[in-house]
Design a protein around this nucleic acid. Structure first.
Length: 498
RNA sequence: GGUCCUGUGGCCGAGUGGCUAGGCAGAGCUCUGCAAAAGCUCCCACAGCGGUUCGAAUCCGCUCGGGACCUCCA
């Protein structure tokens, strides 16, 4: 099989993936800040990495997947009088900071579950790793890349840059970065304009603060990921991911901290997912154009005509490559909903296909080969930087074949039994295991199935008597309930939920 | 201002220099008690202008448009 290639932000090109330890992958993904609800843009990133995680597992790798929960306070702005995000919100809502954290962590997990993402293997919290962060800061100080001013510790970017290129991840020179930075009035604590805080001195009113060698305070934003990734994945690990918006600042600083601490390149492959946009503009907390997952599932958003299921949204995201922006619109979602249904229908046909006789030789070798080629494209496309859109295109090309297999337009023995089996298996594995899609219909079946079979039977009897008034009534009323009946060619009746 | 990305048919979106992306919508036909599905066929796009090449949506240049990052944000 071809090798897996992934786009590395560090080199700005696709590279063949070689794990540090054969057979094992260490992957760290920057998780959510739990002081408010996650919006759909956040979800896109986590869904993208869920696919990557699933695919790595599909390839047989044993993956340690670490995704953090940021629950420690950060400065609001670039000023040290800025409030701790968590305590600020806590005061507004009269809650303890950890109550906020708990509330939104649970909400986040619920949403991730609805989207059917697999939980990471380790989900560490920043507040649970304060001592690790302090240790790391001590190390960086000892190595001479940081300095303390009045209880706050800053990272010395210019000093670091003398030895290692600071802007390596986003291909920027320090001079250019300095030029782009605005003048910070009243901020004379920092020696360099690009210097960032590793540890921040807390004011007495800060609710979240911890003792440290520099007095009471809390960690800077970037240090948690460096400390936790090192703890669970080592000083050097395979993949670090996150949204593209994190590359320039957060990830750049992570690299600098880790290098300054351990003198080792922390990450081999940096993977960045692109943004979700609304009317061409990035969805973000501050822009106020964020969709909450909940609004989507209920249709409760001014820009939406109707509700869309989590799986429709997941599928919608799969149709676009993870490094392209994805624009959110009603029409696109509707198209996704229909497309996904077409895929599920094909999936069901495959699952219910009769076994048939053992056929070694395909009666239609040309078609047989085409099917094999399309199936091979699944892995080939995924190996080419996780191109889910191209896998789906290949799947859709197989759908007419599958449908024809059912209707008899293509005889079962046109394909060899081996091909048929591979078709069934691969279609199913990709849909459910790799892409993580769940059949909504299967979820609410059970009792409903029994009731429907009764109605279908009554309708069948009516039709046999040419009592179309009754048969149409059953079908029409069911449709009102969102259930569509189909009279198949062989006289059977199937149903699907809209 | 700096660093980049991007501009594909009605809509969404893949795309390796030559070979069909795909989905949705639309049109026609077939099937069907009627539907719905499904099958078949059609709709042959690549911002503009130049250049490289036997050949470019794909490479290069310019022009115009859109966006991101440089400040908390997946």
């Amino acid at each position: 099989m071809e090798e897996l290639k992934m786009y590395n932000s560090l080199s700005r090109q696709k590279e063949i993936f070689k794990p540090i330890t054969p057979g094992y992958v260490g992957m760290y993904v920057c998780g959510p800040t739990v002081y408010s609800n996650v919006h759909l843009g956040n979800c896109r990133t986590f869904i993208s990495f869920d696919i990557i995680y699933r695919y790595l597992k599909y390839l047989g790798y044993k993956v340690r997947y670490v995704r953090n929960i940021t629950d420690a306070g950060h400065l609001e702005g670039d000023r040290d009088e800025g409030d701790d995000k968590f305590s600020k919100k806590a005061r507004l809502e009269q809650l303890e900071p950890m109550e906020i954290v708990q509330k939104y962590t649970l909400g986040f997990h619920k949403v991730m579950e609805l989207f059917n993402t697999l939980p990471p293997t380790i989900e560490p919290t920043a507040t649970g790793h304060i001592s690790e962060q302090i240790e790391m800061i001590k190390h960086i100080l000892a190595n001479g890349y940081a300095y303390e001013v009045n209880g706050t510790v800053y990272f010395d970017v210019e000093k670091y840059n003398q030895e290692k290129p600071y802007g390596i991840l986003t291909n920027r020179k320090l001079e250019d970065l300095l030029e782009g930075t605005r003048e910070l009035g009243g901020q004379d604590e920092k020696r360099g304009r690009l210097d960032f805080a590793l540890w921040i001195k807390a004011k007495p009113e800060h609710l979240m603060q911890w003792p440290s060698p520099w007095g009471m305070g809390f960690p800077g934003w970037h240090i948690e990921c460096s400390a936790m990734s090192c703890k669970y994945l080592g000083k050097q690990f395979d993949i670090h991911g996150g949204g593209m918006d994190l590359a320039a600042t957060h990830h750049t600083n992570e690299i600098a901290q880790s290098e300054a601490c351990y003198h080792e390149k922390p990450v081999n492959y940096w993977i960045h997912t692109n943004m979700l946009t609304v009317n061409g503009a990035r969805m973000s907390k501050t822009a106020g154009n964020g969709f909450l997952p909940h609004q989507l599932f209920t249709g409760g958003h001014p820009l939406l005509d109707k509700a869309y299921s989590p799986m429709t949204v997941r599928f919608f995201m799969l149709q676009t490559h993870y490094r392209s922006t994805l624009d959110f619109s009603n029409e696109a979602l509707q198209a996704a909903e229909k497309g996904l249904k077409r895929l599920w229908d094909a999936y069901e046909i495959l699952e219910n296909l009769p076994a048939g006789n053992e056929i070694k030789e395909a009666m239609d070798p040309e078609l047989d080969k085409r099917c094999i080629d399309l199936l091979d494209e699944f892995d080939a496309s995924m190996n080419d930087d996780f191109n889910t859109a191209r896998v789906l295109a290949a799947m859709f090309e197989l759908v007419p074949v599958i449908n024809s297999l059912k209707s008899g337009q293509i005889a079962l023995n046109s394909l060899s039994t081996g091909t048929l089996e591979q078709l069934r298996k691969k279609f199913s594995i990709y849909l459910t295991d790799v892409f993580g899609l769940k059949n909504d219909k299967e979820a609410d079946s059970g009792r409903l199935e029994g009731v429907l079979q009764l109605l279908i039977q009554i309708r069948k009897e009516a039709r046999a008597k040419k009592d179309f008034a009754t048969s149409d009534k059953i079908r029409n009323e069911l449709q009102q309930q969102g259930i569509v009946l189909k009279d198949e060619k062989d006289g059977s009746v199937s149903w699907s939920a809209v």
